[in-house]
């Protein structure tokens, strides 16, 4: 074959046929490693699974108390209520006899949304970080609220401070108790979050939600928005699986069956398929 190669491909040639990892791997006969830790010697029985999960997601091994707090926070995002969107998807998987992994995977993928669950932490942390910078520049909590609401024509749309379906969030108080029990003190982000909540409540009657609390708490622990998102990817997992099983344990297609007339058809009336142009 004639070799007339002129394009410079050294970069890709160097990447070809090998993997370079900054994260770790399994060296057969020597051990499995994560970020410099020997998983079997340093991790198994020594640290919690949540610590290892945070290590893999951020590259930093956290103190156990942060991993324990996160584990408690997961419980607030994994309610087995089959009406909730991600859970209902898994339940539909159950009624159609999908595998547990397929239904749970579909539910988890659907929870990667900007409306609820882990992805909202990105906007939540970005907001509280921005708000803290504004506070340090002299703004009051009320001014921060007014400025944010002005972006939405005066409506109180601040991620972390209004909640769809209900106002107020019963998940915050138990987590506050967990934080105290674990020895956490309120940092500057969380302190500001409470001030924002007070200002928002006074002006609009809206309260902080789990996302607002968790975003401020995690920002206080030094996590970036992306890191907070990445340590929370499977926070809805267990509730999703439970809802899948609830439907799986009942006859196929018996989860919310629909009659034809249950669909409100709003499209064109019946028509004949036209003769194809020649």
């Amino acid at each position: 074959m004639k070799n007339n190669k002129t394009t410079e491909t050294t970069f890709w040639d160097q990447c070809r046929g090998k993997i370079v990892s900054r994260k770790g791997g399994w060296i057969i006969g020597k051990g499995a490693f994560s970020h410099g830790y020997d998983i079997n010697k340093d991790c198994v029985g020594e640290i919690s699974y949540f610590q290892l999960m945070i290590l893999n997601a951020t590259g930093k091994l956290p103190e156990k108390k942060l991993a324990d707090w996160l584990e408690a926070a997961y419980m607030g995002l994994s309610w087995p209520d089959s009406r909730l969107w991600c859970n209902q998807i898994a339940a539909l998987g159950g009624t159609m006899r999908c595998s547990a992994a397929a239904a749970t995977g579909a539910g988890l993928l659907s929870a990667d949304t900007r409306l609820y669950a882990q992805r909202t932490l990105i906007e939540g942390i970005n907001f509280i970080t921005r708000a803290l910078a504004a506070k340090k520049a002299g703004a009051t909590a009320a001014e921060i609220v007014a400025q944010e609401c002005a972006r939405y024509k005066g409506r109180p749309y601040i991620v972390g401070y209004t909640r769809p379906i209900a106002n107020g969030d019963e998940r915050i108080a138990p987590l506050e108790k967990v934080a105290i029990k674990l020895g956490f003190k309120n940092g500057e982000h969380l302190t500001l979050a409470y001030q924002i909540e007070a200002a928002l409540k006074a002006e609009y009657g809206e309260e902080m939600n789990m996302n607002g609390y968790a975003s401020a708490f995690l920002a206080d622990q030094g996590l970036s928005a992306e890191e907070a998102y990445r340590i929370s990817l499977i926070s809805t997992n267990s509730g999703i699986t439970a809802c899948y099983l609830n439907a799986l344990e009942r006859p196929p297609e018996s989860f919310l069956p629909l009659r034809c007339s249950d669909i409100d058809y709003q499209g064109p009336p019946p028509r004949d398929v036209p003769v194809k142009e020649s």
């Binding site: 629909l258 034809c260 669909i263 409100d264 709003q266 499209g267």
Partner: peptide, 13 residues
């Protein structure tokens, strides 16, 4: 109260 669709209609038996 209902799901709606603008493109698909199912004619009941």
């Amino acid at each position: 109260a209902k799901i709606s669709s603008r493109f698909w209609q199912e004619v009941p038996n």
